[in-house]
Write a protein that binds this DNA or RNA. Structure first.
Lengths: 116, 116
DNA sequence: TCAGCTATTTTGTTAAGCAAGATAGCTGGG
DNA sequence: CCCAGCTATCTTGCTTAACAAAATAGCTGA
């Protein structure tokens, strides 16, 4: 598993909720959108389990809609609980990023190779 | 498992390496230091497996030293590989934080309760 | 009709945080 | 002297998450 994958843990739910909050999307579209945002390698095998879990927990609602070209799509909407959860996730995220950034701050990235 | 715990995944290794880079520490001390930094609830059951894994991967080296008051302590030092790995982790971290922050930006945190 | 795209779902693997507890050395009070 | 309590390390078992891979299936156009 890649380093990037590990960093995704725990925050992917938040990213998914944030995208859905802006506008309802279906899974296939969602994985493309996240990749555009810079979260590469977020494939269907990752996205669909997340969507199912979020729906099971009542944070999003799925609704099947016919597609003009292709199989039906299941569009997801944020519930009230989803919005509240997203607020909490964003808040926790900020509280997490700050100490990590301060730990990483002021490092000389070439320290290991300065004395060649 | 808490949201905080999930967010820790993948970045805890980097945090541990960053602390050890500044000065060699032993496990018990490390868990206290991380808590001071704002990474609460990082207990021994979390720290020791991380240290063992990092050592197994050659990123840190452990050295037993007698304590003036209490049982012996195993101090850990960063290896060259550890420094290189830390550089990579910090770099990936930055590439990760940016898109997530942009996804979370500009949200009205009271949106769900504005119309009570 | 069938190849290829879109789209969803499931299964199984790997790995991480962590609570809980085992082990053990040291110190000081009774 | 001994045992309670602190320091310190390590292990076991549980839960959850990312994700590769494959199964399923609808639609379109050649």
């Amino acid at each position: 598993m890649s380093l990037r994958s590990q960093l995704l843990k725990g925050i992917l739910d938040g990213c998914v909720l944030a995208v859905i909050e802006k506008e309802p999307v279906y899974g296939y579209e969602l994985s493309k959108k996240l990749q555009e945002f810079g979260l590469s390698d977020v494939s269907e095998g990752t996205i669909y389990p997340v969507l199912l879990r979020l729906q099971k927990n009542g944070l999003i609602m799925g609704e099947m809609r016919p597609s003009e070209s292709g199989p039906n799509r299941k569009y997801y909407f944020l519930t009230k609980e989803g919005k509240e959860s997203l607020n909490m996730i964003v808040s926790e995220w900020k509280q997490m990023v700050e100490p990590v950034n301060s730990l990483f701050k002021g490092r000389d990235e070439n320290e290991g190779e300065t004395f060649n």
